[in-house]
C-alpha cells in the first residue's frame, strides 16, 4: 500500500515539475484569441520567422464565449482579440478594451477609409477592421427575374411563398424588418422593434427555412429561390450555378465584420501591435481573404488576389453601395426586446 502512495506522489510531483518547467522559457510572446478558421498557420509561422515573437494561439466559435473569457479574466490573459463590430461597442462600454495607439500601426494607411470611423467605434479609438462582408439578397434567376427585386420588401411578395431563406440570425432578420420600415437596423427603440416584428410576422409564412451555416446548399438544391444570404455564400453558389445572383437592396446591404482589439490588461501590447501591423499588410490580408472568403479591408490587397475574387462585385461592393451599407452595432439592453420577439416569431407562428 505504501508503494502505491509513493507512486501517486511521484506522479503528481513529476507532472507539476514538467508543467512549471514549460513556463520558464523567457521568450517574447503574443497571446492571440481568435475565431476558429480565420488565420492559417503558415501566416503565423511567417510572422514568427520575421519577428522572433512566438504566437500562442487559441480559438473561439462565438462572440459570447470570447466575451465571457475576457470578462472573467478582467481583460488580461490575451493580447489580441477579434470581436465582431457590435461586440466592440459593448466591450468599450464595459471598459475591457485598451485604446489603440495608431502611431504604432503604420500599415493603417492601407485601409479603406469607407470602413473606418463607423458607428460602433467612432474615430477607431479601440478597434481596427480585420475582415468584413455584407449580407444582401440572393436570387435564383431561373425562377425569379432579378430585375424585379430591388428592395428587402420584395421578400414579402406573396409569389415567393415557401421559397424564401433567411439567415438564422436574430439581428440580421430584424435588420430587414427595421430597414424596410425606414428605421435603423441597429434600433434600440422598443416601438420600432415591435413594428419590425409585426412586419416579420407577415414574412414568416413565406420563409422556408432559417440557415446561417451553409445557406448556399438549399439555394443550389432549388429548395429556395430568394432570400437574405451573406455575400461570400452567394459568391460560392454563383460559381457552381451562374443563375444565382446577388442583389443590393435599395435600403443598403447589412455590413458586418470582425476587428482587431487589445484587451485592457494585455501583457504584451507591443507584440500585439507588431502582429496587427503584420496582418494589415496587403499581401498578408489577401492570403487570409482568399483562404476563407471574407473581404479584406485593404484595397491594395486586391492586387494579390485572383481576378474573379478581386473583381467580384459581391465581395467588394461599388463605392455607391459602400456608402449605403449599415454596419451592425451593439443594441445594448434592447437585445432582450429583440430576443423576446424572436422567440415569439418562432413560437406563435
Amino acid at each position: 500500500m505504501r508503494k502505491q502512495y509513493l507512486l501517486v506522489l511521484l506522479l503528481v510531483a513529476f507532472s507539476v515539475l514538467t508543467i512549471s518547467g514549460c513556463k520558464k522559457k523567457n521568450k517574447e510572446v503574443v497571446n492571440v484569441f481568435n475565431w476558429a478558421e480565420y488565420i492559417s498557420e503558415d501566416i503565423l509561422e511567417d510572422f514568427e520567422k520575421e519577428t522572433g515573437i512566438e504566437v500562442v494561439y487559441s480559438t473561439y466559435d462565438s462572440n459570447e464565449s470570447m466575451y465571457s473569457k475576457v470578462k472573467l479574466l478582467k481583460g488580461s490573459g490575451y493580447d489580441l482579440i477579434f470581436p465582431s463590430t457590435y461586440y466592440i461597442a459593448k466591450m468599450i462600454k464595459d471598459g475591457l478594451l485598451a485604446p489603440m495607439d495608431l502611431s504604432k500601426l503604420p500599415n493603417v494607411k492601407e485601409l479603406d477609409k469607407a470602413l473606418l470611423n463607423q458607428s460602433y467605434d467612432k474615430g477607431n479609438k479601440y478597434s481596427i477592421p480585420f475582415m468584413w462582408g455584407i449580407t444582401g439578397i440572393a436570387v435564383n434567376s431561373k425562377f425569379i427575374n432579378p430585375d424585379n427585386v430591388t428592395s428587402w420588401k420584395d421578400l414579402w411578395d406573396a409569389e415567393y411563398k415557401g421559397k424564401v431563406i433567411v439567415q438564422n440570425d436574430i439581428r440580421e432578420v430584424f435588420h430587414i424588418g427595421l430597414t424596410s420600415l425606414g428605421y435603423s437596423g441597429n434600433s434600440t427603440d422598443p416601438k420600432e422593434i415591435e413594428a419590425a416584428y409585426n412586419e416579420l410576422v407577415k414574412l414568416y409564412p413565406s420563409i422556408r427555412l432559417f440557415n446561417s451555416d451553409s445557406p448556399k446548399v438549399p439555394l443550389l438544391n432549388e429548395e429556395v429561390y430568394i432570400g437574405l444570404v451573406w455575400g461570400g455564400e452567394v459568391f460560392m453558389a454563383a460559381k457552381e450555378n451562374p443563375d444565382i445572383k446577388f442583389i443590393y437592396p435599395k435600403e443598403g446591404a447589412i455590413g458586418w465584420g470582425d476587428c482587431y482589439a487589445i484587451p485592457v490588461g494585455a501583457d504584451n501590447k507591443d507584440n500585439a501591435y507588431k502582429l496587427i501591423n503584420f496582418l494589415l499588410r496587403p499581401d498578408i490580408s489577401a492570403r487570409i481573404s482568399e483562404e476563407y472568403g471574407y473581404a479584406s479591408p485593404s484595397p491594395k490587397s486586391r492586387e494579390f488576389l485572383p481576378k474573379d475574387i478581386a473583381e467580384s462585385d459581391i465581395l467588394y461592393p461599388s463605392q455607391e453601395e459602400m456608402n449605403k451599407i449599415e454596419f451592425q452595432n451593439d443594441v445594448f439592453e434592447s437585445i432582450i426586446v429583440y430576443e423576446k420577439y424572436w422567440e415569439q416569431l418562432k413560437t406563435v407562428n
Binding site: 459570447e64 420563409i207 427555412l209 432559417f210 437585445i335 432582450i336 422567440e343 413560437t347
Partner: peptide, 25 residues
C-alpha cells in the same frame, strides 16, 4: 429541428441556448 425543420420552431433546448448565448440572460 434546426437541420431538418429549417430552424423554424423554437424548442426548449434552443430556448436555453439562446438565453445564455444571445440574450446574455
Amino acid at each position: 429541428p434546426d437541420i431538418l425543420g429549417g430552424a423554424k420552431n423554437l424548442l426548449i433546448g434552443n430556448l436555453v441556448k439562446d438565453q445564455f448565448l444571445l440574450a446574455r440572460n
